[in-house]
């Protein structure tokens, strides 16, 4: 796992997501998902480039399917942006970096 990316589990999910002082983007992914692999490097870049504005977290749905079920995730990759424990935005499907940032930026603090 790249530096700066948080790995979430069923037991750590609530504590980490609710206590994050920055918006936290949770990437629901699995090993067998091709599009998930394509966006992994994009998420690493965002984590490295914008550490003060956003936290990037990943949740393996194979291991922690209960969390995916709780948020009605029916397709991966799905990315949920949380702030103060509330869902701010939902992104379904792999997207290029520019388009992903365009969607997320309105919900992030200014750099």
């Amino acid at each position: 796992m790249a530096q700066g990316i948080v790995t979430l589990t069923s037991s750590s999910f609530d504590e980490i997501v609710n206590s994050s002082d920055k918006p936290i983007l949770v990437d629901f992914w699995a090993e067998w998902c091709g599009p998930c692999k394509q966006i992994a490097p994009i998420l690493e870049e965002i984590a490295n480039e914008m550490p003060n504005q956003i936290t990037i977290a990943k949740l393996d749905i194979d291991e922690h399917g209960d969390i995916a079920g709780r948020f009605n995730v029916m397709s991966i990759p799905t990315m949920l942006l949380f702030h103060n424990g509330e869902i701010q935005h939902k992104v379904v499907g792999a997207k290029p970096k520019a388009r992903l940032l365009e969607e997320l930026t309105p919900f992030l603090p200014a750099s």
Binding site: A30, C33, G34, P35, A68, M74, S75, P77, T78, G93
Partner: peptide
């Protein structure tokens, strides 16, 4: 409905 039942990727979404 893509991502909410309609899927373009069985391998990505079959699990659900």
């Amino acid at each position: 409905l893509i991502g909410h039942g309609v899927s373009t990727c069985a391998t990505c979404d079959g699990f659900f």
